[in-house]
């Protein structure tokens, strides 16, 4: 027993050493992907508002979602998550409403960015970046330039074993839905079965399911054609100018990464100040220039260098065109059937 209490004593001593902040300093805690915002954001934010910014990192939407669901979001003020997750968090009652009066820089957004289907009028989420999902390929390794989702799903013989698809459930299925002209939010059993059969057939021609390193597989030549988010395809383009991106003729989904304020936030005022700070034009510009994602920040996009848009043509897709694509939405009660279908594909041999 002695040893145990000693251990706990040691552990708590450590926590005091590691975690204590000056009691009176105002602070907010955010959770984001690493490298998804300027490195000096904390210093600049502190200089402008006097608020300490503490940054936690998450690897995936799924993880931060799980963590916030289990803990009620305790300890976090602002989260960066993709729109279907923002929607679910809101439905679960874990988010605070966005008070537009406290975030004047919302005016920097394109008008289109305030009309997003998952949250018209930005009532609980503020968009940070957005884009499409399509085909990223080595123009020097494919016989014909791909134009359709079917070029991925029913690959020609020379592409067999040279293609990858995104592993994340919603985007994986979206490729099949779009190829069949269905909604990316389809949950009826007959459509699920049809797409499942198609994707199981595609699996035999697949090099791998990959949603992290697909662009490096293109650079190395391991793969010739990959299912990709436009921003990530740009990392490949940066390494090799033979890499190109196309939105298939059947269309894409519109993905949106958003910022949300937790209901558990100890400092919702500070959280609003932070979102307002992020919406400054310079931060939007940083996102576009450094991680090569499109941002709904009009002021930021307008200040972009022409050369960037020429090198990465998908960055120039107009907001009005983006809005033609359907967003992934939380599937609600349809999720059970959807998930089982995905498991069937993943377990298929």
């Amino acid at each position: 027993m002695k040893l145990r209490s000693l251990g706990i004593l040691f552990a708590s001593a450590l926590s005091i050493a590691a975690g204590v902040m000056p009691a009176n300093a105002e602070k907010i805690v955010i959770s984001n992907w690493d490298g998804y915002m300027p490195k000096d954001m904390a210093e600049k934010f502190k200089a402008e508002t006097g608020i300490d910014l503490e940054v936690a990192v998450h690897a995936t939407n799924e993880e931060i979602m799980g963590k916030v669901t289990a803990s009620g979001g305790q300890g976090f003020d602002v989260l960066f998550v993709s729109s279907p997750f923002a929607e679910a968090l809101n439905q679960l009652g874990l988010l605070s409403p966005i008070d537009a009066a406290k975030i004047p820089n919302l005016s920097n957004l394109y008008p289109e960015a305030t009309q997003l289907k998952h949250d018209p009028g930005n009532t609980f989420s503020v968009p940070y970046s957005w884009g499409t999902t399509g085909l990223c390929y080595r123009s020097d390794l494919v016989k014909a330039e791909p134009t359709s989702w079917n070029d991925l799903l029913n690959p020609s013989d020379d592409l067999k074993g040279k293609i990858t698809m995104l592993a994340t459930d919603r985007w994986l299925m979206a490729a099949g839905f779009l190829a069949n002209g269905m909604s990316v939010n389809t949950t009826d059993q007959a459509s699920l079965d049809k797409v499942r059969d198609q994707l199981v057939a595609t699996k035999k021609s697949l090099l791998a399911y990959d949603d992290t390193t697909f662009y490096s597989k293109l650079v190395s030549g391991e793969a010739s054609l990959v299912h990709a988010w436009d921003g990530w395809c740009n990392y490949g383009i940066a390494e090799n100018d033979k890499i190109k991106y196309v939105v298939p003729k059947e269309g894409s989904d519109l993905w949106v990464d958003t910022m949300v304020i937790t209901k558990a936030s100890a400092n919702p005022e500070g959280a609003a100040k932070f979102i307002n700070f992020v919406l400054k034009a310079e931060n939007g510009k940083w996102v576009a220039e450094n991680i090569m994602y499109k941002t709904p920040n009009k002021a930021g996009m307008d200040s972009l260098d022409k050369a960037t848009l020429e090198k990465y043509p998908n960055m120039a897709i107009a907001p009005a065109d983006l809005l033609k694509f359907e967003q992934l939405r939380d599937l609600g009660a349809g999720m059970k059937a959807f998930s089982k279908t995905v498991s069937e594909i993943m377990a298929a041999k």
Binding site: E62, M65, S343
Partner: peptide, 9 residues
């Protein structure tokens, strides 16, 4: 893992 985090079931 997928049931807990991806399917959120």
């Amino acid at each position: 893992y997928d049931q807990f985090l991806t399917a959120r079931d």
